[in-house]
Every structure is written in C-alpha cells, then in structure tokens.
Design a protein around this nucleic acid. Structure first.
Lengths: 194, 194
DNA sequence: TGTGTTTTCGAACGCTCGTTCTATAATGGC
DNA sequence: GCCATTATAGAACGAGCGTTCGAAAACACA
C-alpha cells in the first residue's frame, strides 16, 4: 500500500551499533550514523524516531544478543566450575584478541548515561541483573556437583563473578593486555574451587 | 607585574571536576563549565588553554588524589588481609552511600575516551597500573604475614583485585545496591584467606 | 491507470558548540 | 603616575548539532 524500505534492517542496525559502540552516544552524530548506515538523516528519523530511540533500539538488540550468548556459554560444560572457567577464559581471550578495544556496549552505555534520563540506565541495570542470575544458577550447579566451593553462598559468588566480569570489560577498553586479562580469569576460577 | 587572578584555583577545579564527573567530557559544555566554575569562557581559555587541556588537568588532579587515598588505605591494617578487607568494605559502603552515583571519574573517562586521542587513555591506564602495584604489594605483604592465600601468585591476586575494584566502580554508577556491593567485597576477601 | 501512502532525497531550520576578539579593568615595577 | 602585562567581560565567529520540510519517487490496491 506504500513505498517499501530500500535498506536491510540488520545491516543498518549493525552499522549503528558499531558507531555507538566505538564512540558512545554523545560523540556519535546523526550525520556520522547516516553515513555509516548508508541512509539519509531523514530516513533514520522516519524509521526510528530520533537519536535516542535509535540508541535504545541498538542497546536492546545488543543486550538480547549478548545475554543469549552468555546464557549458552554458561549452560555448557560438564560441571558448574567448567562452565565458569571456560566462560572467563574465552572472555579474556576474545578481549585480548579484539583490536578495536570496544569493550562492552552495555558497560560503556552504563557509564556514559548520566544525563540521558533513567531509561538507558534501566536497560543496563536489567542486563546486569540477568547476568547475575545466570552466574548464580551456574554457581549453584557447581556447588551441587561439587566443583565449586561452598564456603561462600551462591548469591555472593554470583555477585563476585558479575563484578569481575565488569572489571574485565573495563580493562578491555583501557588495558587489554593478555597477561592481565588471563590473570584475572585464572585467579577467579582458581579461588572458586572447593 | 600584571593583573592577578580573581578566582580560587581549588574551588574552580573542584567545580570542573564535579561537572565532568557527572556528565563526562562530551556532554559537559564550556558554557556549563564556566557557569559552575564562576568564570567566563574567556577566563577558562586564558587560564587552562582549551577544553581538552582543562579535562586533562582535572583528570590528573583527581588521579593523584585518588591514588594517594588508595595507597594510604592499603598501607593500614595489622595484616595484608586486613588492609584489603577494610579497603573493599569501605569502598562498598562509600559507594552505597553516595547519592549522585558518580562512580569513579577515571573509570568513566576510560570508557568514554575512544575518540579523544590516546592521551586520556594513557592517564587512565597508568592509574590502573599503579593501582595494580598497590594491590600487589598488599597481597605480597599478606602472603608473608600469613593472612593471604599462597595458592595464587601475588601478581594474579593483584590483577583480580584490580578487576574487582573496577567492577565495583561500574556498579557504583549503574546498580549501587548495598547488598550487591557488600557481597562482592565479602566474597573477594573471604576467598583470599589461606 | 490512477490514487493514496510511505520512503527517499537534499536543503534548510534554529540552536548550541568550542573558540576567539575587542575592549576594559587591575595590578607591579620604573 | 605611568607603562607593560595580564585578567575579565561579553559579544561574536564559523561550524556542527539534532531535527524538520517540501518535493520527487516507488510501491499496493482500486
């Protein structure tokens, strides 16, 4: 009943994600976004509303992909400990091998989003909460199968793992040195053994 | 030999720090800064150069104060373990009690500063390196006095403590819940005991 | 084949940005 | 008391920002 869109939504959102990920919200201009997405600014406004709405869309898309990937990673492994260990080791390795030092879009957004109202912080906090739950289930599984220490509650272990992961994500952007990242992963997993 | 400055440098830099801390570099305009600092924009340019130079000045001033505070905190305590424990507990408590959710200026700067050249990232990385050294010395002290486990090297423990602290700082801005912060501090210290 | 709807395009809107200019005010050394 | 020097004040600069507009283009359905 009307003229159809000419662009591929996946490619366009990937391009927007890339720019926001590298530069953050404030430093990404609509014109830069349009150039990378292969659209005019008017098309962006027609399709997504305004800059904040596009950012929200990008954030939520990234968050759901990232959470899915973490969930499947933490569900693998013969034991809870193995899942945690391979999760952190592969996170450290992937971080060290990433040349752009982009870190994690959610963490970047969480630290930038002081002024832009509470909506973005809410998204970030929700992702962190779900991550904490994933870690909790994995730690509890490890305590049941005997691979994870019972000296701390599964709740506290989950909190610690969340904090450690966020620390890794900070270092991914600021000091992505293999020895540093691997050391964190190594010490974390080693200290969690019974 | 010339007209003297009318403003108090400490108060003026404190005000600039506060705005950068809350909003980040990009979202802090020179006019906002001038208003908070009680100066005209021309005075800022006369005294500090340009916006980047002012930011660098603020960053370095904050970094040296923060590092000094961490160093003196980690030097206290009857044992290495006590120093680490009180350091993380008071960090968690202070974070939970801070209503503005500003987090840490250095961490915020490190995650925002992708575009602004390598100079800011260098400052951030240096602070993290010095923090790692402080943690290392404290962990080594604890291993000597028997309060800290020898199951991991002091190097890896220092890396882990750096990562955990950065994670706490991320959560300070995004999810400053007392139970979460205290749980991280509690688990970290508990797992480091011999 | 026309009609209605939506997308695209490029130019334009008003605003704020970082920065600079001009003029004036305030000092210390002669 | 004058002069060189520096700080202040406020207006102004060009550039870029987020956003919108009017017209042209492309489809679905009658």
């Amino acid at each position: 009943m009307a003229r159809p869109r000419e662009f591929d939504e996946t490619a366009v959102l990937d391009a927007a994600t890339d720019l926001f990920w590298n530069r953050g919200f404030e430093a990404s201009s609509i014109r830069d976004l349009a150039a990378r997405m292969g659209l005019t600014t008017a098309s962006i406004y027609n399709a997504y509303g305004d800059k904040r709405a596009l950012y929200k869309r990008v954030l939520e898309r990234y968050a759901s992909a990232a959470l899915g990937s973490c969930a499947s990673g933490l569900a693998c492994g013969a034991s809870g400990m193995e899942a945690i260990e391979s999760f952190f080791l592969s996170l450290a390795n992937a971080t060290a091998a990433e040349p752009e030092r982009k870190g994690c879009l959610i963490v970047n957004a969480g630290l930038e989003s002081a002024p832009h109202d509470a909506q973005f912080k809410q998204i970030v906090a929700d992702v962190f909460r779900q991550l904490e739950t994933l870690f909790h289930d994995c730690a509890a599984r490890g305590q049941i199968d005997g691979s994870v220490t019972r000296s701390q509650s599964a709740e506290d272990i989950a909190r610690l793992l969340l904090g450690t992961m966020l620390g890794l994500r900070v270092l991914a952007r600021t000091r992505p040195e293999p020895a540093l990242l691997a050391g964190i992963a190594r010490a974390t997993t080693a200290l969690l053994r019974p």
